[in-house]
Computed example of a mutant assay.
Amino acid sequence: MSDNNAILVLGAGQLGMAVLRHLAPHVERAAGASLSVLLRPSTAASADTAKRHDLAALGALGVDIVEGDLAAQSGAELAATFSRFDTVIPCTGFVGGPGVQRKIARAALDAGVQRFVPWQFGVDYDVIGRGSPQDLFDEQLDVRDMLRAQQGTEWVIVSTGMFTSFLFEPAFGVVDLAANTVNALGSWDTAVTITTAEDIGALTAAILFAEPRIANRAVHVAGDTVTYRQVADALDRARGVKVRRHEWTVPELKRQLAADPEDALRKYRAVFAEGRGVAWDKAQTFNAQRGIAVCGLDQWLRDHLH
């Protein structure tokens, strides 16, 4: 596509690498197109074995490296970098701290990029609304307001739900494999949409190159939508033993958060327990409507439980 010729992905972590891997074949087929990634200078020059491996993988994909620092650089400096590209896709998450997502969005708009895919790979912030237990989500709504208030830059939001791996992150506390326990957030009937980083990469690339063109709206994708009861049942089947089950109610989780209001994981637990904007019908998703195969809960367990 003519105005998707020069694509810049911000960051090469788990999601950034997946997005780059799946964009590369599209870019290779498009005459005159290019694919670049923004990395901190320290990352680009790193001697770390894992980082060197990633850098070699980027080279094999034909990805050019652009140096920059989203947290340290000013909005004007970022805009100067972004202005060299048609499409900008941040894949760095919240690691830069409060205000960074607003700064990136402002820089993309000031740069006049033709297409912007903001870091909104997660829940449906419009449904959750302002003032949720996770205060970082308000910044996501600020970014949406900025994008909707202008016409110069086309935008696409990809709503993915929770990253599947995060559901099984020991620190998150929902699935504790070592203790053979599942802690339901809110109730056993509370649902959550989950999607793997690899599928998010594939679906983001498919959305960007979709015909008819997708513009100025949020697109929902899903690897699976499951209740916490279904998560526990799936673990029972996969492991051949019954997991212990505890229910963490919303009032209990809010009490935990009040006791340590700066704890990011307690914020996430409370907002997912409320159940608003964190789950949607798989049948209505982009991948279901296009017949794109994705990794559901049972397949993820087969792939990761040994």
Rank of each mutant, 00 (worst) to 15 (best):
V88Q: 07
A149T: 02
I89T: 08
V9N: 14
G16Y: 03
V174S: 15
I104L: 14
K103Q: 14
R245V: 09
D263V: 00
A80K: 11
I89A: 12
F172I: 13
D48I: 03
N216S: 09
G152L: 00
A71M: 08
E28K: 11
V175P: 07
R52Q: 15
A31T: 04
T181Q: 13
G161N: 04
A191S: 15
S42E: 15
T43Y: 03
L61I: 04
T43R: 08
V192K: 08
D69M: 06
V219W: 00
E77G: 10
V221P: 11
D124K: 01
Q120G: 07
K254I: 00
F168N: 09
V113A: 09
G161C: 03
A259Y: 08
F82D: 11
S34P: 01
E28C: 06
L10F: 06
G296A: 07
L8Y: 04
R213M: 05
G99E: 09
M1G: 14
A76D: 13
R52P: 14
G173S: 07
Q14C: 04
P90I: 07
G75K: 03
W188T: 13
F137C: 04
R130H: 10
V241Y: 12
L136P: 05
L265D: 15
G275Y: 01
R40N: 14
G112I: 00
D135W: 02
D260E: 14
A105C: 09
P133M: 07
Q140T: 03
T196L: 06
R290E: 15
V9M: 10
Q256K: 11
G75Y: 02
V182Q: 10
T43P: 09
D303A: 14
A258F: 00
R21Y: 02
F209R: 09
F82I: 04
D236L: 00
A80S: 13
G16Q: 11
V271P: 05
L136Q: 13
H304K: 12
T285Y: 01
Q151G: 12
G99C: 06
S74E: 09
V231N: 09
